[in-house]
């Protein structure tokens, strides 16, 4: 296999790891973020804690997989992004720590004050986590202010309109997916309350609008993904953004009808095609530049040696199927309807 093919395969592996991570994270975190809005008792909150906590540990590792794969195969990309977004990645780290600790320790002490503060931490860190991820990922698709010499602005530049709209789009989709997940996996009222919450407070309406904002923003730069290598090569690629929009609207429609299973599926599909649009759009860049296309850092120039790429591809080829197997086994066997305590 040529060096370029190896680099492309690795790029697909990393993008897929992001997709697998974000698709799961959105409903796990969305369900968590809803807890304060819909739970009337600790028994109900415990249901949400179980439906998200049971899987969150295993899901978190997909993020680590995406990050360490980037570190090991495209170290230049890893180093450049992290130094540039120094503060942002620390905020993301704090959100991960806050969410990871709080979800596991809410009921470890009987004190009401403890429970309350852990619940607040859990909620805020969940929203922050998915928002920062949304801002970051949208900016990867939007491009960074890279000129020939390096980044021209500081980390704050990622909080542009497109980035913020992307962050909110992630929050919106994850609340919808989370409501669907709660509805699918719990007994009692909490599922209905979640689904009617996303309808009543208009969360379902925001997804298509925010998506439109993001796409408009992405389209607006000199090196837009919509005029990138793949999109300008074939019009067929426009099926991805189209599907993203269609599924966002379908999630809205099913949310309006208060259908749990459907909003879960359609919000996940919307996220899936949003990510496919972006990762296909930026190809062959790993850090696209929104100043001038040729300033971006490509897959080929940042990849490590063929030998190291081959090694990583072999590792993934061996272990990913095994991981799918046991994580699938876990979803199948442990995703049963969670009862209310007092039943």
């Amino acid at each position: 296999m040529s060096s370029d093919t190896l680099a492309i395969i690795t790029y697909i592996i990393i993008s897929s790891s992001w997709v697998i991570y974000l698709l799961q994270e959105m409903f796990i975190t969305g369900a968590s973020a809803l807890n304060m809005a819909i739970c009337e008792s600790e028994a109900e909150r415990k249901q949400i804690q179980v439906v998200s906590g049971l899987h969150f540990d295993g899901v978190e590792v997909w993020l680590l997989a995406a990050l360490t794969l980037t570190l090991g195969t495209f170290p230049l990309v890893f180093g450049t992004t992290f130094t540039y977004l120094y503060v942002v990645f620390f905020l993301l780290l704090y959100a991960i720590i806050g969410r990871g600790i709080s979800i596991e320790v809410i009921y470890k002490l009987d004190s009401k004050r403890w429970i309350k503060s852990m619940v607040v931490t859990w909620t805020i860190s969940s929203i922050l986590l998915i928002f920062i991820l949304g801002v970051y990922i949208s900016n990867v698709f939007y491009g960074f202010p890279l000129d020939e010499l390096g980044m021209t602005e500081n980390y704050f530049s990622i909080f542009n309109v497109t980035g913020i709209a992307g962050g909110l789009y992630f929050v919106s989709l994850s609340l919808i997916a989370g409501a669907g997940w709660i509805k699918l996996n719990t007994e009692g009222n909490v599922g209905d309350k979640a689904v009617s919450f996303v309808k009543k407070y208009g969360v379902i309406y925001t997804a298509p609008i925010l998506l439109m904002l993001v796409f408009m923003g992405l389209n607006n730069t000199d090196s837009s993904i919509f005029i990138g290598e793949l999109f300008s090569e074939s019009i067929v690629f426009f099926i991805f953004p189209t599907l993203t929009a269609i599924f966002s609207i379908l999630a809205l429609y099913m949310g309006y009808k208060e259908k749990g299973k459907e909003i879960f599926i359609f919000s996940l599909l919307a996220m899936l095609f949003f990510l496919v649009t972006g990762f296909a759009g930026i190809y062959p860049y790993m850090i696209p530049s929104n100043i001038a296309m040729e300033n971006g850092i490509t897959i080929y120039e940042s990849a490590v040696s063929d030998k190291a790429l081959k090694l990583v591809i072999i590792i993934v080829a061996i272990f990913y199927p095994i991981i799918f197997l046991y994580q699938g086994w876990k979803y199948k066997n442990f995703t049963t309807k969670v009862k209310l305590n007092d039943e």
């Binding site: 590792v61 680590l64 360490t68 570190l71 180093g79 272990f319």
Partner: peptide, 25 residues
């Protein structure tokens, strides 16, 4: 990381893929 990623990265990747997933799940 940029200088050492190629070699230092593979044990880190293996740690995540061949171990963390198992532990955490």
């Amino acid at each position: 990381t940029e200088a050492m990623g190629e070699v230092f990265g593979s044990p880190l990747i293996l740690e995540v893929i061949a171990a963390f997933f198992l532990e955490s799940t």
